[in-house]
Amino acid sequence: MTDSVFPSPAAGDSTRSDRWKPNRSLSKLSQRSVVILFGAFAMVSVATTIGIISTLLFETIEFFLEVSPLHFFTATRWTALFANPSFGVIVLLCGTFLTSFIGLLLAIPLGLLAAVCLSEYAPRNLRAVLKPALELLAGIPTVVFGYFALLMVTPFLQNIVPGLSVFNSLSAGIVLGFAILPTIASLSEDAIFAVPQSLRQGCYALGATKRETVTGVVLPAALSGIVSSIILGVARAVGETMIVTLAAGQSPTLTLDPRVSVQTMTSFIVQVTKGDAPYGSIEFKTLFAVGMTLFVITLLLNILSFWFVRKFQEKYE
């Protein structure tokens, strides 16, 4: 089967082309079917995303037909499930903010410190053990963290912090911090470890100490990766559900006092879905309005991260 477009070699050499017969008669067909099959898989995820977003959008619009956006964003009470409801989402945002803030206050510095120690200071064989351990920690179900917060951390903290109630954002925030710490540490460590060795050597060759090399060259070179790991940590903190539901409670309170119970956006969603909100009722629609708020916040964080990586990522060969 010689369907080559090239002329056959000069006479006497003709035996040579006999030796090259690629067995690809079916390859065009299989190539096409693979493209179609995988394309279909890809379409499923695109379609799911579009479905979710349009449902969210549709129900959110329904919600805003009944409750004015002005009220939603400015009212200072959240009593969505009561007879005479008030929908001040600020209250839930405040709960989310408070628990996330406490968690990140812990997770960002500790995570970065762990990342720097692991990639720059730990011996290679210690890193080979600790890195997988860290990633394992990231895989612990958050409901475990939640019960840990409620049953261990809160009773312990009650000995130290006066006036700490059973449900409180302090304990939830601290445990939330430990839950997202491995994510920040592991991803930052990847970024720091990926900084080319030649940069470190170039820095040492100028007479820099180890500390100067780490702070002056390695961390700036890994900046985009570090920042995106932090943004991912923020997104995880904001979207985290089980820990805050179990440990921070269900009382929507507009407060920055970490000792009392608050309700986050996610734990409100849990509360509503636990009960039975009839389809089309205002509770049902509230669910989507809060879900939409959460979605927009995480989306913005993702866009921020994407933009940051694009802008600051250094290109090495």
Binding site: S198, G202, A205, G207, T209, P220, A221, E317
Partner: peptide, 20 residues
Amino acid sequence: PTELRRRIGMVFQKPNPFPK
């Protein structure tokens, strides 16, 4: 060695400017 390396500079095989 830190002080030594200030007195004895080095240029490497592949250019390795800092990301600055």
